[in-house]
Every structure is written in C-alpha cells, then in structure tokens.
C-alpha cells in the first residue's frame, strides 16, 4: 500500500532527523572525549597551589584527555596539596620525569591538569608519583589574585582561632572560606570593626588539622572567580614558629578593587588556551605531541 509506505518513509525520516540532532549535539556542542570511562590507574602529584582545581577535572596530555582528578588533599604537616590523578589504562606510558601543570581553560573556565612528557624511558608505575609539578598560581598572581573558589571545609577536628586586621575587606562575609595553597582549611567566623579603630578585625576559625601555619604568614582577601564571593588566603611565611589559638597575623593584604582591573581583560573574551600562554608557563599544548 502506497499510503502505508509513505507513513513508514516519513516516520523513518523523522527518526533519522532525531538521531541527526543527537549526533549534532553530541559532536558539535560537547567534548565527546570528556567522558572516557573504563579502567584507570592512579598517579600522585604534589602542588604548591591547586587554585580552583576540582575533583573530576580532566587530566590532559598534549590537550587530549587521558584521565581525571580523583582526589585533592593537603599533605599533612606541609603547605602542599596532594592531587591523585586517575589515568586511563590505555595511557600507561607516561614517562616518570614528566611535568604536571595546572592550567585554566578559559577565563571563567575550570582548571585541569596538563602533563608534559619527559625524556625518561621508564613510565610512571601505578600508584607512583610525578615529582615535577607547576602550581596553579600563574593566573591568580597575574590578575591580582582574583581566582580561587571552593567552600569552607567541615570542621571535624575542631578549630582554633586567629585574627587579622584589614583596612578594606571588600565584600567578605562571615562564613567565607579560608584557604592555604588553594585548599580550604577554615572559615571566617566574624568580621567586626572595634570601637575607635579604623581597621576591620576578621576572626578566622581554622581546622585543627592545619595547625602548622608559620607565625609570619600573611592573610589576604581574594575574590574567587569573576563574580564570585571573597575569601581569605593565607600565604605561609618562613618562620619555624606556628600560629597558636588567639594569635593574629602580622601581615595582611586588603581586598583589591576587582572591577577596575578586570574590565581590561574581558572586553573581548578569549578562547581557552590563551591564559597559561599569557603567563608564559606553557604555550598551545594541544598541538604538541
């Protein structure tokens, strides 16, 4: 019957159109490579600062995704972040002297770990470690430390309190995060202006696990992301003495006027790979290997 067949043909066209739309959406508007799943092995890395890097962020070699970030921890007793990478089984040949770097994809984008191969013939073992890393500080330093983000951690181990005085706290709110090396270690407990004083006194509640903060460390008010909330970043000093409960910071750095600075950068938003390039840490790693 011609009548019946025309329905079948029309319906077939409709179904093909639907799948064409799916193929279009999947290949043109997403990164299909974002979802390679399967067996993985882990490699440990240590960074001085993980910035905004998050669990599940991609790990890339020459711009190609090879795995994802499995865990981010603070190395106990050190001002260092331990980042565990889960690498796909199919990429077993990463030289042990490779360099892991934290990059930012796009100005508003997420951060990812890029691995640049070394010369060694021996690959990294499962559960092994890449010794050479470059931290995620470049963009923050450059832009006046505007990036960071993340939330205050659970205070499981109890807290101790330190205070700092700032001439300008910007939009800092009680409850905001306190970070060291990019990892949240506590939160802002109160922001008060003492009667008669010109500076704001900020009380920080810091997790007891992170009690080894040198007493000459400085505290700064940073903004996480372009339109994000503000947080307090602690930059460790070199003193062998640690801050104790009730102490205050000697050095503080007040909030910067983000709006003034940032306007210049964003007029013509720029594509992904420009940022690390601008800082000089790496150039166009997508076309490298």
């Amino acid at each position: 019957m011609t009548q019946r067949r025309s329905y079948a043909v029309g319906t077939g066209l409709f179904i093909v159109l639907g799948f064409a739309a799916l193929a279009y959406l999947a290949t043109q508007t997403t990164s299909v490579a974002n979802t390679s799943r399967g067996d993985t092995y882990t490699i440990d890395t240590r960074f001085a600062n993980v910035g905004q890097l998050k669990v599940r962020a991609p790990v890339k070699v020459a711009g190609v995704r090879v795995g994802s970030v499995q865990a981010i921890d603070l190395v106990p007793g050190k001002e260092e972040a331990k980042v565990t990478l889960a690498i796909d089984e199919s990429h077993k040949d990463i030289p042990e002297d490779s360099v892991a770097t934290i990059y930012t994809s796009g100005l508003l984008g997420d951060q990812y770990v890029g691995i640049q191969f070394g010369q060694s013939k021996t690959p990294v073992k499962e559960g092994g470690e890449i010794g050479l890393t470059r931290p995620a500080q470049q963009l923050e330093e450059m832009l006046g430390k505007f990036f960071g983000g993340g939330s205050a951690p659970d205070r499981l181990g109890g807290t101790f309190h330190v205070t700092g005085s700032f001439t300008n706290i910007g939009g800092l709110q009680p409850g905001a995060a306190v970070k060291m090396a990019g990892v949240p270690i506590g939160s802002v407990e109160s922001v008060v202006v003492k009667p008669g004083a010109v500076e704001a006194t900020v009380t920080l509640a810091i997790d007891k696990r992170y009690s080894q903060i040198p007493d000459d460390s400085s505290a700064a008010v940073f903004t996480s992301g372009l339109i994000g909330s503000q947080y307090v970043a602690i930059q460790p000093g070199g003193s062998p003495e640690y801050l104790a409960d009730g102490d205050s910071f000697v050095l503080t750095q007040s909030a910067l006027q983000l709006e003034d600075l940032i306007g210049k950068f964003l007029v013509n938003g720029s594509p992904s790979e420009n940022k690390p390039g601008a800082q000089g840490a790496a150039t166009d790693n997508a076309g490298k290997k």
Binding site: T29, S31, N34, T35, G109
Partner: peptide, 20 residues
Amino acid sequence: IDNGTFWSNMTATVDIHKDI
C-alpha cells in the same frame, strides 16, 4: 560574538553525559 569562542566555550563545558 566570535564564532570560534562561541563554540569552543560550549564544547569545553557541555558534558555529553550530564547535559545530553
């Protein structure tokens, strides 16, 4: 908006599993 920027930002963020 720049054509390349439009697409590259989209492909970088949209996740086939979560979004599609």
